[in-house]
């Protein structure tokens, strides 16, 4: 059967189609992750009206603006406390923070660790493209050692964050890492995160052809995705300190998986009052 040319997509039901096409570069990993999130919303069984999507600032932070749910594009780094407040005021809502590595772990790192520590009932999806993409490819807190960026022209000298390890150490009840190519596993992980009570974290390694691929001679997005395909291994039981990403060492794989899946009472500021009555 030959293809049929059409003008709409079934997943459009979860998007603000009057705002498409989105602003992301060709081959950006945000699109597939958005699709996985949209698919998870549909499969979650939770009505769209009860989803909220919150972001900070950056490329990824534009995602909520395209989602047909209550959406909040807040200030740089501050999405997590904003989302926390929505989740506490409207506990019936499924609140997801969708933002980038620089936003969540550079300027916003303190909020991340404390929300995870509190086990606030929100999901955090982090597109990790190793750089500040929107401002033009500066070094971020996840830029691999030796990798280049406009503010690390000789190669990054700072050890990057190992995000799953960090999230687990702070107390997240669900921690996963996938790439923008592992869309099915990614969708399943987001769905799992939505089903869980408490603070969940999903890192998505994402191609950024302009900010990261180009200065590091990886090439276009498709080449970056091929790099993930070749270097990735799935190991749900991985030893978390081993999850560091080093582009230079070809013998060290990029480890993917659902690494943490535990149950813990989610943050409830009134918990002690409720216990009193028992």
């Amino acid at each position: 059967m030959p293809e049929i040319l059409v003008e709409a997509h079934p997943i459009d039901a979860v998007f603000r189609t009057d705002r498409l096409p989105h602003i992301f570069c060709p081959g950006c990993g945000i699109g597939p992750t958005m699709h996985a999130y949209a698919q998870a919303i549909l499969e979650s069984g939770i009505p769209k009206d009860q989803h909220a999507c919150v972001s900070g600032i950056g490329c990824t932070a534009r995602v909520p603006g395209y989602m047909d749910v209550d959406s909040y594009h807040t200030t740089h780094g501050r999405s997590i406390p904003f989302a926390l407040a929505i989740a506490l005021v409207k506990p019936e809502m499924e609140v997801t923070v969708f933002s980038g590595d620089g936003d969540l772990f550079g300027i916003g790192g303190n909020h991340f660790i404390h929300a995870a520590r509190r086990n606030v009932d929100i999901n955090v999806i982090c597109i990790n493209n190793f750089n500040y993409g929107m401002t033009g490819g500066q070094a971020g807190p996840t830029l691999p050692l030796g990798a280049k960026a406009t503010t690390a022209p000789y190669g990054n000298t700072e050890p990057p964050f190992n995000l799953p390890y960090l999230a687990a150490a702070c107390g997240a009840v669900f921690v996963a890492r996938w790439t923008a190519l592992h869309v099915r596993q990614l969708k399943d992980a987001i769905l799992r995160a939505m089903q869980k009570k408490g603070f969940t974290f999903i890192e998505v390694l994402s191609p950024c052809p302009v900010g990261f691929g180009s200065p590091n001679d990886i090439g276009d997005a498709i080449e970056e995705v091929w790099l993930y395909r070749e270097r990735c291994v799935v190991n749900h039981d991985a030893y978390l300190p081993d999850l560091e990403i080093d582009l230079r060492r070809k013998d060290v794989p990029f480890v993917m998986g659902n690494f943490v899946d535990i149950d813990k009472a989610p943050f409830d500021p009134l918990a002690m009052m409720k216990n009193k009555g028992e």
Binding site: M1, P2, E3, I4, L5, V6, E7, A8, H9, L20, P21, C25, P26, G27, P32, L181, D220, A221, I222, V225, W226
Partner: peptide
């Protein structure tokens, strides 16, 4: 499978073709 394509949305990244 029947394929449907929305030509005006495509940015030519080739993901669908390669994978």
């Amino acid at each position: 499978g029947q394929l449907y394509i929305i030509p005006e949305r495509c940015k030519g990244c080739r993901f669908c073709i390669d994978f």
